[in-house]
Design a protein around this nucleic acid. Structure first.
Lengths: 235, 235
DNA sequence: TCTGCTCTTTGCGATATCGCAAAGTGCGCG
DNA sequence: CGCGCACTTTGCGATATCGCAAAGAGCAGA
């Protein structure tokens, strides 16, 4: 039973950048320790502050990782896309998860016991390099957002965020590029450091100009070039 | 000549967290490839956009790493403290340096050819784990700043930034905790996403309340508790 | 099909923060 | 030892963005 689902996972997993250049034998050994888990929409994979007992790879679906500040405000740290590693608190030398990972749509993840992390890294140098690059890219993204938050006004930040979402999670339709999973104005506000109201106003204005099409938990970019011009004026 | 300076470096280096649990032989081998470099105040170790030819470890001094946005605004990404690894663009899968590293005071760094990075990581699993934790902590810091930028007003952000500086680079004196290296209001503004003017106003107000003592490129925290209360009210 | 909850829209006044301007001031360099 | 530059301070008006309030809709479940 378990062997079978693992076999299925390997086929899904083999071509991921994370595992690139790994020996098939090592990969197979790694998968032996893995457990596939199905997460229903709205359920959480782990919660902020909870003991970090496992690390994960998203195979299918979308997750939203957010943090709550001590005074109760939410911030969305990132969206997890298929193929992304997440919940690797151990790599940050943390005993707990810094955020909460919630499924935006029904998702499929595989998990490893966190205790395996060090051994996995030590025994799979190629994987170590790949994992490091993954974390490095996260760092890059975080710096990009910091730079945006520091220097750009709200409208540009939101435009950037929407364009990134469309790129990472866009499904092409007749009307334009539709964001693949349910997302609220509140979510976008939490990604860009602004308020629900401001995001709503911006999207309304953009919709009037024919740049996007909105809807309840829906968003379609109909004029990516136009949006890009808002994100990066005259460049 | 070179052997001698390397010998000196090893003694400085042996106890760094980055090299913890590494075998002495491996560490010695690693140091063989290293080149010590002295950086004068105001000089740069590398520049944003430059080809990433080496990665570095700061032994002594302080560096400021900053980025310039396409439209010319500066953002300070971080301050490099002794013992920190920096300029590991390779780990981020980048061919160039994403920022500029400038010496705030005369500094001593050691550098390795970037081409060595992959081999170093592959052959030193313990170092790989440590390096990953280093990057992971960077990521954590970046998320902390993002959270602050998203949810806190300017005064709290600046208070946090000053407290962190005092903690990481504070020298205890009679008057209080003095920040170890020359830092301008502009620098603090670039770290917190605000303007030179606002920082100056805040510091003046704090000085009037006896929380800090300012000066040209100088800053001393005289009442850390009081500042902490601004950073995190009623907690 | 209706109901209710969540999400979204929009108006309007409040305000934190910016941006500009101009005057001080400490300090390194000649 | 004094000059000049870089850094700092401070005032004041402009404004982007927030926060509150209230009304309007889409959607799921009964």
């Amino acid at each position: 039973m378990k062997a079978q689902s693992v076999a299925i996972d390997i086929s899904l997993v083999r071509n991921l950048p994370l595992f690139r250049q790994m020996e098939p034998a090592a990969l197979t050994r790694l998968m032996t320790r893995a457990t596939p888990v199905r997460i229903l929409q709205g359920d959480t994979v782990f919660e902020q502050g909870g003991e970090a007992v496992a690390f994960y790879l998203l195979l299918h679906g979308r997750l939203k990782v957010s943090q709550v500040t001590p005074d109760g405000q939410q911030v969305m740290v990132r969206v997890v896309h298929p193929g992304d590693l997440f919940g690797f608190a151990r790599a940050l030398a943390r005993p707990d998860y810094p955020g909460t990972a919630k499924a935006a749509v029904e998702s499929l993840v595989i998990s490893w016991p966190m205790a395996d992390w060090d051994a996995v890294v030590e025994n799979n140098p190629r994987l170590a390099i790949n994992a490091m690059q993954t974390i490095g890219q996260r760092l890059d993204e975080a710096h990009t957002r910091l730079r945006e938050m520091s220097t750009q006004e709200v409208e540009r930040r939101v435009a950037h965020a929407v364009l990134r979402l469309a790129e990472k999670a866009g499904r092409i339709e007749e009307a334009g590029t539709r964001i693949d999973f349910p997302i609220t104005r509140q979510d976008i506000a939490e990604m860009t450091g602004t308020t629900l109201h401001t995001v709503s106003r911006l999207l309304s204005a953009w919709e009037a100009r024919g740049l996007v099409e909105g809807g309840r938990q829906k968003l379609t970019v109909t004029d990516a070039e136009g949006l890009a011009k808002i994100a990066d004026p005259e460049e």
